[in-house]
Amino acid sequence: MEQILDRVLPDWRSVEWEEAKRQPMWRHREAAHRAIALLEAEQELQENLGSGAPQLDASTLHSWVWGSVQGLWSSGHFREAVGAAARAVNAQAQAKLERRDASEAKLLSDAFSTNPPTPGHPRLRLCENDGGDTFKNRHDGAGNFARGVYAAIRNPIAHEEDEELEENEALEQLAAFSILARWVDSAAVVKAS
């Protein structure tokens, strides 16, 4: 209960309320009543005045991403969480492809290549090659996307000492790595015969 009160009414332990005589745990009781009223009012406002826009629940991100960042996220280390997600996706891709000679953008660009696999260079296949544009577009797009998220998101986080990311920006970046993780996870590995 105290954890809920800490989140809803952060100053509940020290705020000046009139003390109820001969009531054990009066502060807890008062804080609970106030927290319930506040939560009900917030819910009513959201229902009546909210934007109606969908909201992204971080727990629905791919497990490689959210599972690797929960602790960092809950402590407000958003920048480090995004970096950890990038490293987790890379590690899972290396394991799936059984490759340690390449990483990140280079690894995934090669893995999503539409070229046939060669010894030491297995491919990730999101769909069967039926000779149509869909096969080429999906794999070229996935390879370009991987290059993009590692170049534009992971590299600045790893190489620039900057301020902490805003929570919403970091969540968007985690969502990008979640998309990539889903593609890598769901793709079939095709090796040279």
Rank of each mutant, 00 (worst) to 15 (best):
A102W: 05
A151L: 00
L45Y: 09
F135Q: 09
F112Y: 07
F112E: 05
N155I: 00
V89Y: 06
A158K: 00
R182M: 11
H28L: 15
D133P: 07
Q92M: 14
K136G: 00
W183P: 02
S68F: 03
L45V: 09
D11H: 04
F177A: 05
W183N: 08
F145I: 13
R22G: 02
R29V: 15
V65F: 01
S193D: 10
E30I: 15
I153C: 03
V8C: 01
R34C: 07
N137D: 12
N48G: 14
A53E: 10
E42V: 12
A158E: 12
D57S: 08
K106V: 13
E42C: 02
L9S: 04
I157Q: 00
V8L: 02
A175S: 09
E44Q: 11
N90D: 15
S68G: 08
E160N: 02
V149P: 00
E169L: 15
N137Y: 06
A20K: 11
N90P: 04
V189P: 01
H121E: 01
G143A: 14
L165T: 13
I157D: 02
N155E: 04
N144A: 15
R27F: 02
L180V: 04
D101I: 03
E80L: 14
N144P: 00
D130F: 00
I153E: 01
P156Y: 00
A86V: 09
P116N: 15
A192Q: 06
D133R: 11
R7Q: 11
R138T: 12
E169M: 12
A53L: 13
G67H: 07
V8I: 12
S14P: 01
S63T: 15
R125M: 05
H62E: 03
G132T: 14
M1R: 12
R100T: 14
A85F: 04
A20C: 07
G67W: 03
G148D: 07
V15C: 07
L49G: 10
P54I: 01
R125F: 01
K21W: 06
A142S: 12
P24Y: 09
T114H: 05
L56W: 01
G143T: 09
E42T: 10
